[in-house]
């Protein structure tokens, strides 16, 4: 499978995660979000950028519990809770936001 973004063809796996992390662009995130009928706002980008930084630092996509805690630490308590994150990413903040961020599915996620 593949998506078209920024004039490029970007390969995805059968679950819609990018097969090559380095092929990610902001445009790709927008296309992936549009497929889920989400228009990315600054609040979405905050989480997506956080995930990309986390991945660069630790080489894994965080589990949802870890993400929630880390977001709380970095962006404040009002954002570090599952209600806020699920409102932004209804299919699961770790699963769906990681997909938009071009990361693999979090370890331990089924």
């Amino acid at each position: 499978m593949a998506i078209q973004a920024d004039g490029k063809t970007i390969d995805t796996d059968e679950e819609g995660y990018l097969t090559d992390l380095s092929s990610w662009t902001e445009g790709a995130a927008k296309v992936l979000a549009a497929q889920d009928e989400i228009e990315l706002t600054d609040s979405h980008w905050e989480v997506i950028n956080f995930l990309r930084d986390y991945y660069n630092e630790y080489q894994i996509a965080p589990a949802v519990r870890v993400l929630t805690k880390a977001i709380g630490k970095k962006l404040g308590k009002e954002k570090g809770n599952s209600k806020y994150l699920y409102e932004l990413f209804p299919y699961g903040p770790a699963k769906q936001a990681c997909r938009f961020a071009g990361l693999p599915k979090p370890t331990g996620c089924v």
Binding site: Y58, Q59, V66
Partner: peptide
Amino acid sequence: SVDSGIGVKDFSRTYRALEGY
């Protein structure tokens, strides 16, 4: 790195994420 050297992810950095877990 996946792109150069031995072509494998540097998972040693993941040990530093364990605290968050």
